[in-house]
C-alpha cells in the first residue's frame, strides 16, 4: 500500500515533469522599463511608458505554447516635457479621452537562436490592431529572468499623429520601442 502509493506518486511526478506546463511569470515593475524613441527634426525625442504590465507563460526550452500579454497605460507616458506630455493626449496623438490602454498579445513564440526569441502577435493601439513581431532575448536564472528587445513601429499605422502630423516632418514616422523587463516566476 505504502509502496504502491509512493510508486504512484513517483509516476505522477514523472508524468507531470514530462508535460510540465510552462511557468507563469509576473513582472517586477520597479526593475522593468518600457521606452520609446520618436524623432523631432530628425533628433531623438525619447519617452517612457511609466505604467505597464507584462504577463507571460513561457518555458525557454519549449517556447511554443507560450503566451505573452503586455498592457500599457498611455496616460503615464512621459517625454520629460510638460508641454509635450500635454500635447500627446490630444485626439491627433494618443487620444487619451478614448483610448487609455495599449495591448500586445502573442501566443506564437519561437526560438530563433540560443536565448533569442520572437513573439508574433497583435498590437492594439488607439483602436487599431496590427500584426507585430517582437524579438527578445531571454536571460533566466532560477526564478528570475530578464527579457529585453527592441522593435520599430510606423506610428501612422496606428493613427498616431493624424492630419498635418501624418507627414514625416517635423515629427518622424518611425518610433523605436525598447523594453527590458524583469520577470519573476509566479509561486
Amino acid at each position: 500500500m505504502n509502496l504502491r502509493a509512493r510508486l504512484a506518486g513517483a509516476l505522477l511526478l514523472a508524468s507531470v515533469g514530462a508535460t510540465a506546463p510552462a511557468a507563469d511569470w509576473g513582472m517586477d515593475a520597479a526593475a522593468s522599463r518600457l521606452e520609446f524613441i520618436a524623432t523631432y527634426e530628425r533628433q531623438a525625442a525619447p519617452g517612457v511608458f511609466r505604467r505597464f504590465n507584462t504577463r507571460l507563460r513561457f518555458d525557454p526550452e519549449r517556447p511554443q505554447g507560450g503566451r505573452l500579454h503586455v498592457t500599457v497605460m498611455l496616460a503615464n507616458t512621459d517625454m520629460d516635457s510638460t508641454d509635450i506630455n500635454e500635447a500627446i493626449r490630444a485626439p491627433e496623438w494618443f487620444d487619451l479621452a478614448r483610448f487609455q490602454q495599449a495591448e500586445f498579445t502573442s501566443s506564437d513564440i519561437r526560438r530563433t537562436a540560443p536565448r533569442q526569441y520572437v513573439a508574433r502577435g497583435v498590437l492594439r493601439l488607439k483602436g487599431v490592431n496590427r500584426e507585430v513581431t517582437v524579438p527578445f532575448t531571454w536571460d533566466g536564472a532560477g526564478d528570475t529572468a530578464v527579457m529585453a528587445g527592441e522593435l520599430t513601429l510606423d506610428r501612422t499605422a496606428f493613427g498616431i499623429g493624424t492630419g498635418e502630423w501624418a507627414a514625416g516632418d517635423p515629427i518622424g514616422l518611425h518610433v523605436k520601442v525598447k523594453f527590458k523587463v524583469t520577470l519573476r516566476k509566479a509561486g
Binding site: 523631432y40 527634426e41 533628433q43 531623438a44 525625442a45 520629460d80 516635457s81 510638460t82 508641454d83 509635450i84
Partner: peptide, 13 residues
Amino acid sequence: TANIPFRVFWLFP
C-alpha cells in the same frame, strides 16, 4: 526648461 529639442536653423542642436 520646456525641454523641446531644437536645432538652430535646422543645422545644429
